[in-house]
Design a protein around this nucleic acid. Structure first.
Length: 595
RNA sequence: GGGGGCGUAGCUCAACUGGUUAGAGCGCUGCCCUGUCACGGCAGAGGUUGCGGGUUCGAGCCCCGUCGCUCCCGCCA
C-alpha cells in the first residue's frame, strides 16, 4: 500500500496513527535542524515535519526534496500545539512527524508558479503549453471537479425522468447549412468526406422516429468557425429530444434540470418556473435575443414623442419609418467624454449613425448637444418617461428598428458594466420564446433562424406562404445572465408541412433530396410529434464557477487560432498518410507552417 | 476577413524625450538557521528585449514586415 490517506483528510481524531501519504511537495521549508514539507494532492495539503530526533535517515533524505517532487512519506499523526494550528489548512490541526520519505520522482522547477494567486497573472500561452502543470492548480481542479458534479447531476436527473443516454456517430455527413464543418477524408471511399457533427440534431430526431421516446447525450460537437472567450471549435452540449410533448414539457424539464445544476454547483435553487419573455419583447426592451435581466436600463421607444420634432436627425429617421429609442444609464451623468466616444464607436459599428446623449447635471439641468432642438413638450416627455434624475445619462439611437435595438442593446451592456449595475453572484435565468421562423438571408432570400425542421407556431402556419418573416416558431432559448445557454424547438413531423417549409426556403426538390432525403423518408414512417433542446455544457459550467473564459472549464482547450499548444496540433502529416486518403496539397506560397 | 491590446531574466513587471554595463520582486543554486506554513539571513547564477529588416553616431523604445497570445466585430445556435 503506497498511501493510507490522502493529503486532505487527516484531522485531530487521527492523532497517534501511523500513516503514509503520497503527493507533490507544495513547499519545502528547511530550517536547518527542522524541515517542513507541505505535501499536496488533489484532496488537500498536509504538513509533514522531519526532525533528526525522529529519524536521522528521513531528515537526511528530506533535505533533497524540492518543489513539485513526488514524495511518499510515512510517520505519525500529531496534534499541533494550539499556537501552531494553521486555520488556513483543512488539515491544519495536525501534522505528520515524518519517519520515512521516499522520492518517487523528481521535478524540474515548474516554468511558472503553481499557486493560484500568482498563476492567475501568468500568460495563458504558457499555461496552455504546460497545461498538465496548470491543471495541478487548486482553482483549475475545482473547476474540473465542479464540471464533473454538474455532469453527474444532469445524468442523474435525466435518468430519473426516463431519458436514455445514446451515443451518436462522430463521423457523419456534411450539411452545408449552418457553421463550417470539420471534414474527415475517407480512405476507402476516395474523394468522399465525413463531417464531424455540429450537433447530433438529425440523429436525435431519428431516435424519436425509432420510438426511443426520451433521448439525451452529453455530446461533443464541432464547428470550424472563429473562436471567442466563450466559443471553442469543439464543445460539449447536453443534447435532449423527447416525443409527444409541448413546449411546456421542455420548459418544465429544463427548469428542473437547471435547478439541480445550481444545487450541484453550490448555488441556491432558483424559483421555478423560470421567467419567460417573448422574442419580440427581448429585442425591443433589451436590444438582444439573449437579454441580461440582472439589471434594468431598458430600451424605451420615444418615436411617438418625437413625431413632428424640429430635430432633423430624428424627424428624418421617423419619416422613413424608423424609430427613436433611448436608455437611461442611471448614475452615469458624469461619465467621461472618452467613454461616451467609445460607446459611440460601438454604436457606429452596430450600424447607427451616431449616439446622441443628455447628461443630467447635479442641479438637474441638462447638458447635451441636441437638447436645444427639443420642444418644451418633448423635454417634459423625456423627463417623465425616462425618469430622468440628477446624475443620469440618457442615450439615444435613431434608425431602423433592428439597427437601433442592436446598437442600444450593446450600449446597454457597456453602460451597465460602467455603472457597476450588474450584480455579482446573481443568476438571472430567462426563457426567450416565440422566435421567428425565418429571417432574411444575406443573399436576400429566407433562411431558418433555427433549422429547417423547426415547427411553426400553430397560429402562424398560414404565414409560411403569405408573410413568412412574421411567422413565429415553436422555438425557445434559455438565457442565463445574458449568455445563451441553449435552445431548441418543437420539430415538424408532418411531411406536408415540412415540404412547405422547404419551399419557403427556396430549396428545390433535388437539393432537399440530397441534403435531407433520409429525414423526409423517416418522417413517412410514423414520426411522432417531437422536439428538444441542447444546452452548452461548457458555458453552463463557466457561469456556475464564475470563470471568465470557457477555457477555464475545459481540461485541454485550444487557442484562438484553434491550436493545441501542448500537443502542437494541428500538425503536418507524412506524404504517405496523405496518399492513403487521396489528398494532394495545393498551398499558396505564403502559407505559414503550423507550430 | 477587419479593429484593439500584449510580447524585456524561468515567472510577474520596470527602464524618462532614442543615450553609460537593461534593473526589481518572486523563483532557482550554494551556505547558515529546530516551529515554519508567503519561514528568515548571506552569497551567487541567470538576458539573441518574440523573430527579420530599416532609420540613426547610437534602438528595448521610432518605422516596415513577420510570428505568437488575447479581446471584440464579421462568422457562429
Amino acid at each position: 500500500m503506497m498511501r493510507t490517506h490522502t493529503c486532505g483528510e487527516l484531522r485531530a481524531e487521527h492523532a497517534g496513527q501511523q500513516v503514509a501519504l503520497c503527493g507533490w511537495a507544495d513547499t519545502v521549508r528547511d530550517h536547518g535542524g527542522l524541515i517542513f514539507i507541505d505535501l499536496r494532492d488533489r484532496y488537500g495539503i498536509t504538513q509533514v515535519t522531519f526532525d533528526p530526533k525522529d529519524s536521522q535517515a528521513a531528515w537526511d533524505a528530506a533535505q533533497a526534496a524540492r518543489g513539485e517532487y513526488v514524495l511518499r512519506v510515512a510517520g505519525t499523526v500529531q496534534l499541533r500545539p494550539p499556537e501552531m494550528v494553521n486555520s488556513k489548512l483543512e488539515t491544519g490541526a495536525i501534522e505528520i512527524r515524518g519517519t520515512a520519505i521516499e522520492v518517487l520522482n523528481r521535478s524540474q522547477p515548474p516554468p511558472f508558479p503553481l499557486d493560484d494567486e500568482k498563476a492567475a497573472k501568468v500568460a495563458e500561452e504558457l499555461r496552455l503549453t504546460y497545461r498538465y502543470l496548470d491543471l495541478r492548480r487548486e482553482s483549475m481542479q475545482r473547476n474540473l471537479l465542479l464540471r464533473h458534479r454538474i455532469t453527474q447531476a444532469i445524468r442523474t436527473y435525466l435518468d430519473g425522468e426516463q431519458f436514455v443516454e445514446i451515443e451518436t456517430p462522430i463521423l457523419t455527413k456534411s450539411t452545408p447549412e449552418g457553421a463550417r464543418d470539420y471534414l474527415v477524408p475517407s480512405r476507402v471511399n476516395p474523394g468522399c468526406f465525413y463531417a464531424l457533427p455540429q450537433s447530433p440534431q438529425q440523429y436525435k430526431q431519428l431516435c424519436m422516429v425509432a420510438g426511443l421516446d426520451r433521448y439525451f447525450q452529453i455530446a461533443r460537437c464541432f464547428r470550424d468557425e472563429d473562436l471567442r472567450a466563450d466559443r471553442q471549435p469543439e464543445f460539449t452540449q447536453v443534447d435532449i429530444e423527447m416525443s409527444f410533448l409541448t413546449p411546456e414539457d421542455i420548459y418544465a424539464l429544463i427548469d428542473g434540470l437547471l435547478a439541480d445544476v445550481m444545487e450541484a454547483a453550490g448555488h441556491p435553487r432558483p424559483t421555478l418556473p423560470l421567467p419567460r419573455m417573448p422574442y419580440r419583447e427581448a429585442m425591443d426592451r433589451y436590444g438582444s435575443d439573449k437579454p441580461d435581466t440582472r439589471f434594468a436600463m431598458l430600451l424605451t421607444d420615444m418615436s411617438d414623442l418625437f413625431t413632428g420634432t424640429q430635430f432633423k436627425v430624428f424627424a428624418s429617421v421617423l419619416g422613413q419609418g424608423g424609430v427613436v429609442k433611448a436608455i437611461n444609464a442611471k448614475g452615469l451623468g458624469a461619465v467621461s467624454q472618452g467613454t461616451i466616444d467609445g460607446w459611440t464607436a460601438a454604436a457606429r459599428e452596430a450600424g447607427l449613425g451616431g449616439l446622441a446623449f443628455i447628461r443630467v447635471q447635479p442641479d438637474g439641468s441638462w447638458k447635451s448637444p441636441i437638447v436645444k432642438f427639443f420642444s418644451e413638450a418633448e423635454q417634459a416627455g423625456l423627463r417623465e418617461r425616462l425618469d430622468m434624475q440628477p446624475g443620469d445619462l440618457v442615450l439615444f439611437g435613431a434608425d431602423k428598428r433592428d439597427v437601433v435595438n442592436l446598437a442600444l442593446g450593446r450600449i446597454r451592456l457597456l453602460a451597465g458594466a460602467e455603472a457597476k449595475a450588474i450584480p455579482a453572484d446573481t443568476f438571472a435565468f430567462t426563457w426567450v420564446t416565440d422566435f421567428p421562423l425565418f429571417e432574411r438571408s444575406a443573399e436576400g432570400g429566407l433562411t431558418s433562424v433555427n433549422h429547417p425542421f423547426t415547427a411553426p407556431h400553430p397560429e402562424d402556419a398560414p404565414l409560411i406562404e403569405s408573410d413568412p418573416l412574421r411567422a413565429r416558431a415553436l422555438a425557445y432559448d434559455i438565457i442565463l445572465n445574458g449568455v445563451e445557454l441553449g435552445g431548441g424547438s418543437i420539430r415538424i413531423h408532418d411531411s406536408d408541412l415540412q415540404a412547405r417549409a422547404f419551399r419557403a426556403l427556396g430549396l428545390n426538390e433535388e437539393r432537399i433530396r440530397a441534403m435531407f432525403g433520409h429525414m423526409i423518408d423517416a418522417f413517412r414512417y410514423g414520426a411522432p410529434p417531437h422536439g428538444g433542446i441542447a444546452l452548452g455544457l461548457d458555458r453552463l459550467v463557466m457561469l456556475m464557477v464564475g470563470a471568465e473564459s470557457i477555457r477555464d472549464v475545459l481540461a485541454f482547450p485550444k487557442t484562438q487560432r484553434a491550436t493545441d499548444l501542448m500537443m502542437n496540433a494541428p500538425d503536418k502529416v507524412d506524404a504517405r498518410q496523405l496518399r492513403d486518403i487521396w489528398i494532394q496539397l495545393d498551398l499558396p506560397e505564403s502559407t505559414p507552417s503550423a507550430g
